[in-house]
Amino acid sequence: MERKLLTKDSYRSLITKLIGQNYQVVAPVKKDTMIDFLKISSFDEITEDYIVTVSSAKTVAFPRNEKLFDYEKQNKKLTQQDYDFDSIPQSVLIGVRPCDAFGFHSLSSIFCWDSIDKIYTTRLERTTIIGLSCNKSDDYCFCTSTKGSPGSTAGSDILLTKMTDGNYIVEIVTEKGAKLVADFSDLFTADGGVDKESLLAKVAANFNVDDVLAKINSKFEDEAFWTEQAMRCIGCGACAYVCPTCACFDIQDESHGGKGHRVRCWESCGLSLFTLHTSGHNPRENQGQRWRQRLMHKFSYMPDRLNTIGCVGCGRCSRACPVDMNIAEHCMSIIEN
């Protein structure tokens, strides 16, 4: 893989130039008490003081609300204004951790499964992902258990790794990444050959996801197991909403008088309305069944049908969980029970 060097000053110039050229630049920003991906208007808004952001990078391609079309009814005549694809900006997403970047692979496998979701794919096509290797981790991180690593290039167009002098090793991963480097070629210099591995966080692999994949189907009918696993779960949607690979959505019409729009918004298998039928029947009527759905989806359905694991080991769900449902622990319980 081609490597270059980007000094911290050149990094600032790159971002400043991108903003100047009307790219939508989205980066980790400290807002109030949290660090999250937000659109920036100046390089100084960026922070690198995070393990992972609260929300995942998926919001760039799969925002929490996506207006699909507008409609208006007047004198029994319905007019519809379709989705405006021109409104999707050319974006550069920076500071994306390798787990998050790989999340797009899982997410795309869902949005491009049987029919291609044009809104999602267009958003992603118009986004260049500049990853940032992890130089620190916490107790929630487990990417190395799910085939990832703190310096994995998979999913990024360019991956930056910060060196001790504050400059960055640049790995050019995709054609899109190569184009960006070519567009600003004066900012990138020859690679100094610094050992990347020594700069990365050490994340212990506490389990092997293949063992979860091999075991989970046999646990499907063990209701007592799932009930006990989910006892602590209070049934909110925090885990799914911060997850880089959770793709479930709801379709809602929001109208005022004769005018309105249709919105795609996030949905979660943790919530009690999930899969509730109009008849009143719900095939997943208790939290144990809903928690099973969450884990089966990630570690059985997605591997079986989409040939990808639905979990990148970022640990966001566990950090966001009000009751500390630590998904890595639950994976280990599946292996051990």
């Binding site: 109030d32 209070i234 909110c236 925090a238 799914a240 979660s268």
Partner: peptide, 16 residues
């Protein structure tokens, strides 16, 4: 307005 703009409606408040 700033606070509500951040809410993702996960209903963790309600559930807890």
């Amino acid at each position: 307005e700033n606070e509500f703009s951040k809410c993702i409606k996960c209903y963790a408040c309600r559930a807890s």
